[in-house]
Structures are given as structure tokens and as C-alpha cells.
Design a protein around this nucleic acid. Structure first.
Lengths: 149, 149
DNA sequence: GAAGATTGAGTACTCAATCTTA
DNA sequence: TAAGATTGAGTACTCAATCTTC
């Protein structure tokens, strides 16, 4: 027997869907218009910039950015074509590669970051009170934990 | 001067991003594997099924499903190719078209709906307490309201 | 045989240009 | 000129197949 959602749950569910789609689109539009990057591109640059030597193994990067390996591979192709990242073979494991952030990539990230933070604040963080935003974070984290198992 | 996010806000922000991506992917995977539909396809079928005569103007449908007109047009092409929807010219406004849910489309939706609800419960609704899920809905709704203005 | 990573074909989305009627 | 809707070209993602090294 199907346990349908009641009408309040329906509304919550649709609000969640809509918030996701609208905010993601808004952030993506800003980032694209201002710096020619997709959100996924931006995430990659951020992760690399936070890593030692500004490099990460392809598989680790895929995992952290929630992308499939295949998708990441195509994405790195595109970023490499614009000289924002570089592929370097791994000396220890000859199957592996590192993606390395170039100086140009780092420079672009430094340019984009303030605008992106502003955009995240405008569409998400500053729309809620600090307590509300924290609550949203806690709920989101709970959902993530559940999915990882 | 850029107002960066503090480290707690960073964590909340990343949790929100991750929850979005993971849950959307999980729902999409289930729907695709079980019924060969994307989430966007499903939304279209739902909206049509809830409308009088099971039909809607293309522009209204685009607005409700948060798609661009161009994207909706391509999507309806694909759904029409599988005989799940149908295009019908609007008699009052000769510029306009209706998308109409076919019997086959309705039947597929009836098949898919129970599985999809189960999937939504499993990955989202039932992971949280009723109060938590309601809170998530309220916060999401607040975000949506803000974006609409 | 399994893990790291890439490839190509098919599918889906975006953006600007276009067509038609209001 | 605006609005409703579509089109096609370019770009991005998915899935299964492949290659290489472990």
C-alpha cells in the first residue's frame, strides 16, 4: 500500500524542489554571466585551490565534487582547454592522474570568489536569519549523512 | 569589502549543496531505472494530470515546472515521440499550443507515482522527523518567496 | 580480476535567432 | 512592437565500453 504524502508534506516537498532549482539556477546564472564559469567548474577550482600543491587525484576530486569519473574527465578536458587546470601523471601509481590548478585558474578563482559569495548571500544566506540558516545547514547535513549509508 | 562566510556558514552552505545534489541524483536514478523518466519529465506529467482536461498552455507549463520555454519545447518533443503527451493548437490564441497528457502518459504516471513517492520518502521525508521536515519546507518556502521578488 | 581514468555515442540543455499571431 | 512558441547549433552529461596498471 502506497503511503502518499499528505497535503502539507506535498507543499513542503514542492517548496524544497523549487528552492533547489531556483537557487541553483540563480547562482549559476550569476557565475556564468560574471565569470563564464558553471557552478561545477567553480567547485572544482575551489577544491583544487584548497589542496596541497593545488592538485588532487582525479578520483578524489570526482568524489568531493559529487561527479562521476566520466563527467569529471570531460569537465577537466574543458577546463584544461582554457588553461585553468592541467593534467599531471601520478608518479607512484601509473594508472593515476592529478588535476593541477594553474596560475590562471587560481587567478580566475580569486576574481570570481567575491562575486560568488555575494551571490550566495543574496540568494540564500542573507535571506534567512542566522538561526534559520544554521537550521537549514543542520537539516541538510542530516540528509547527507542518511544518503551516505 | 567582501563579506566572506565564516566557517560554520561554509559548512552549512556545503551541506545544502551536497544534500541537493545527492537527493536529486538519487530520485532521478530511481525514476530512470524503474520507469525510464527524468525528474523533469515526471514533473510535467504530474502538472498535466492535475490540470483540467489534462492539458496546459506551453508557457504556463514552463513556468510551473521552472523550465525555459525552449527547454520545455524540447522536452515535449521527446515526450510526444513516446506518445506520452500531445500538442494541440489553442483555438482562442492562434500563437498558442496546449500540451495534453495522453492515456498512455496518464497510465505511465499512475505506474510511476507509487515508486516515486516511496523514493521521495526514503531519501528525504522519512529521513527527518515530521517537525524537521516541516521546518525544511518552511525554510525552503521562504527562500522561494525571496527569489520571486 | 579490480581500480584509475578516459572515450565516444547518444541524449539533454542553453542561448540566440526565427516565425507567427496579437 | 510584444508574446507564444519553436529551431538549430553549440555545449554538457550519461552510460557502457575500453585501456592501462595494480
Amino acid at each position: 500500500m502506497t503511503r502518499w504524502l499528505n497535503s502539507e508534506q506535498q507543499l513542503s516537498w514542492r517548496a524544497w524542489l523549487a528552492a533547489n532549482a531556483l537557487i541553483t539556477d540563480a547562482l549559476q546564472r550569476d557565475l556564468q554571466a560574471q565569470h563564464g564559469l558553471t557552478l561545477a567548474d567553480y567547485e572544482i577550482l575551489v577544491r583544487l585551490s584548497e589542496s596541497p600543491e593545488r592538485m588532487m587525484r582525479m578520483s578524489d576530486l570526482a568524489e568531493q565534487t559529487l561527479a562521476s569519473r566520466s563527467r569529471l574527465s570531460h569537465q577537466i578536458d574543458r577546463l584544461a582547454k582554457h588553461d585553468l587546470v592541467l593534467r599531471v601523471p601520478c608518479p607512484n601509481d601509473k594508472r593515476g592522474y592529478f588535476a593541477v590548478l594553474t596560475d590562471a585558474g587560481f587567478a580566475l578563482l580569486e576574481q570570481a570568489a567575491p562575486d560568488h559569495v555575494e551571490s550566495v548571500r543574496k540568494h540564500l544566506v542573507d535571506v534567512l536569519s542566522p538561526a534559520e540558516f544554521e537550521a537549514l545547514g543542520r537539516l541538510s547535513d542530516k540528509l547527507v549523512q542518511a544518503l551516505d549509508s
